[in-house]
Computed example of a mutant assay.
Amino acid sequence: MTVRTMPRPRPRTSWAPKVLGAVAVGLVPWVFVLGRSLPETTQVRHWPAAWIGLDLTVALGCATTSRLFHRGDDRARLSASAVAALMVMDAWFDVLTAQAGTELTQAIACAVPELALAGLCTWVALRNAERES
């Protein structure tokens, strides 16, 4: 007769959630400081490089997620989560930095597929997580 033993629970790192919680609490007053101190407008150096870098990072994340997911590698959920976050951030900044009028309309139109990709990546991340449990 074989005796089945329960797997040992992983040891929990107790300091990590405490640090994350403290950062979350600390960011609340910081947001108010930023709201009062940041200028309404600003000029940005290397604007094209910032957006090109973001889009290349998204492309690399999509390629990585695709490859990992195709191979059945559970790490696909990690890259999918990162791409989802990047796409939400991309849509947010596209819309909020656009000039009123045609530029804003274009930014909103671009936000739709960006947020759809974020949704797809979230689905990939959650789908893989559900299969593990």
Rank of each mutant, 00 (worst) to 15 (best):
D94W: 04
L120R: 10
V58C: 07
H70P: 04
A80N: 02
V112S: 03
M6W: 12
V83S: 09
T5V: 10
P17D: 03
Q106C: 04
F93P: 01
G119V: 07
E114A: 05
A82Q: 08
A118D: 09
L117Y: 08
S37N: 11
L56T: 10
P113M: 02
V28W: 00
D74M: 14
P29M: 07
V25F: 11
H70D: 14
E130L: 12
D94Q: 03
V44M: 09
S14W: 15
T65H: 05
E132N: 10
L56D: 14
T64V: 11
W47P: 08
N128L: 15
A111W: 03
Q43C: 01
W30R: 11
V124A: 03
P17M: 12
R75P: 00
T65Y: 05
L115C: 12
V44L: 11
P17N: 06
T64M: 12
L120C: 11
H70M: 14
V95I: 11
P48N: 02
T5S: 06
M89F: 14
P9S: 09
P39N: 06
D90S: 06
C62F: 11
L78F: 14
T41D: 08
V124P: 03
D94S: 00
A16K: 14
A100M: 07
V95A: 00
W51M: 02
S37Q: 14
I108Y: 00
V112C: 07
A50Q: 12
H46D: 13
A76N: 01
E40V: 06
R8W: 15
P11T: 15
R36S: 13
V44G: 05
F32M: 10
L60T: 11
G72N: 11
V23M: 08
W51A: 03
G35I: 05
L34D: 10
L78P: 04
A129F: 13
A85I: 05
C62W: 11
V23T: 04
G72M: 12
F32N: 03
R71Y: 10
P39R: 08
G101F: 03
V25C: 07
A109V: 00
A22K: 10
L120V: 14
W47T: 01
L56F: 10
M89L: 13
A80R: 09
F69P: 03
G35C: 06
W123M: 11
F32W: 11
K18G: 14
G61V: 04
V19E: 06
T41Y: 01
P17W: 07
H46G: 06
E114R: 00
A50L: 13
M6V: 14
T57M: 10
A80I: 08
V44D: 00
I108H: 02
C62N: 12
P7S: 10
Q99C: 06
L27T: 00
A91C: 06
T42F: 11
A82I: 02
G72K: 09
V23P: 00
A100H: 05
A50D: 10
H46F: 14
W30K: 08
L86Y: 02
W47D: 04
D90A: 01
E103F: 04
R12H: 15
R10A: 15
I52F: 05
T57V: 04
A63D: 00
F32Q: 06
E103W: 00
P48A: 06
A107R: 01
V3N: 06
Q99R: 12
E114P: 00
A80W: 04
P17V: 11
D74H: 13
A84R: 08
A100K: 08
